Simulated assay, not measured.
Amino acid sequence: MPAISDGGVGRRIAYYRSVVRPKMTQQELANAACVALGTIRKIERGERGVSDDTLQAVADALGVDPVRLRHDRGAAHSQARDGLPALSAAIAAYDCPDDGPVRLLAELRDAVGAALKWRLGAQYTRIVRDLPDLLTELTRAYHTAIDGERAELAQLLVSAYRCADAAAYKLGAHDLSARLIELMRWAAAAAEDPLLTASVAYVRTETFFPARAYAAGLRALRQAIDTAPAPTTAARCAARGALHMRAAVIAGRAKDADAATAHLNDAKHLAEQVREGVYYGTAFGPDSVRIHQVSVAVSLSGDHVRNALDVTHEWKPPTSLPAERRSGFYIELARAQLWTGMPDSAFESLKVARKIAPQHTRDHPWVREDASKLRRLRRASSETLTSFAEWCAAT
């Protein structure tokens, strides 16, 4: 792998090691990252470059996204996009995979669990880099499995496809995202789990957003809600509640305030019956519903935008929520603040979103739009705002 010139990477590593992760010594970082102590010392002093693999290992050990450590953020952005063809190639032969090694089911389960953490943490570069091989291995395992393991392997395929879809969708590869969703539907049918089918219906809504086919998307979600299992357990409540949350958002995009309110109320009622958590790959609970209240208010726009600010007056999403969802909240909040004449607050919210999930924030089209507008509103652009706008490629 090519080495990254220091450009401050070493200083940032030292900062996260000693400040963000207090009491972590250079030796402890070296052990956790499986890197020689001398290498860590030289990197932090700026005496040597950092390869992509080493940077990823150090970032994992520190518990941060490698984008936060990297000086050349544009390179990281390009690296994620450049890896998308490998994802496409990995799914092209989903029904006729090549021969190769297959790990034990327990090991595959752990690998998919790790990928789920990358998705919830918005680590798209990591997903694009490591998912193609895992997807290929999972399809091998599925097609050669004994009957007793095939259903679980289908479940693992759904989760892995969803991780790949998250990266594809956020990076703007909507055709690839649609293909991955169709494979999720195929694998979910083989898993024979109605809650998994409901989770796929939740994700499928992504195909309607870029096309602005909101009426069709709302219709598909209502069908999914009608066929979802009765909410008699926490998992069932979460599955149905997540569908209502999604329906509220797409109704908001369609400017159907009555439908959006009705779905939000249903989601709120179901959320009161469960603890906030990740169910079948989707975060659901009272906090997630609050975040969707903000999203719906912003989508409805006009007089509804004030409702978004009311929700956030004395509440902020807890750090226990997935990073992608929390960063999305601040992106939505920034738009509400910008529309209500609070540009300084909007910029602060965008900076918080970047701190939580830099890749998710950088690739969000609303971030670029709002950063551009903030630059226009401030006739004497501050250096910080200019730097932020350049970071997210705002015009």
Rank of each mutant, 00 (worst) to 15 (best):
D165G: 06
A167C: 00
D99L: 14
L105I: 14
D95Y: 11
L108W: 07
H174N: 05
R129W: 01
E152F: 03
L156S: 05
L105P: 05
G121F: 00
L120W: 13
V158W: 09
D98F: 02
T125W: 00
R109V: 10
L120G: 11
L134I: 07
Y169F: 15
R129K: 10
E137L: 08
A90T: 14
R150I: 07
A92D: 13
S177Q: 04
G121L: 08
G172P: 12
D133R: 15
D130Y: 02
W118Q: 11
G113H: 10
A86H: 08
L104C: 13
T125V: 01
R119V: 02
Q155M: 15
Y161E: 08
L171V: 01
A168C: 08
A86T: 02
T136Y: 02
T136M: 11
T125M: 00
E152R: 09
A115V: 04
S177K: 00
Q79W: 03
T139G: 00
T144G: 11
R126F: 04
H174V: 09
Y124G: 05
V102Q: 03
A80N: 00
C96W: 14
R150W: 06
V112I: 04
A154D: 09
C163N: 08
S78Q: 10
I127M: 06
I91D: 09
L131M: 15
V112D: 11
A168F: 05
A154T: 12
L135E: 12
A93V: 15
L156H: 03
G100W: 09
A164W: 04
Q123A: 07
P97K: 15
L105H: 08
L104H: 14
A92Q: 10
I127Q: 03
A89F: 02
I91P: 04
V102G: 08
Y124A: 01
A141V: 13
L134V: 06
A90D: 07
S159C: 03
A173D: 14
A173G: 02
L84N: 04
A167D: 01
A115D: 13
T144M: 13
R109A: 07
A114C: 02
Q79K: 08
D175W: 04
G121S: 12
A106W: 12
A89I: 03
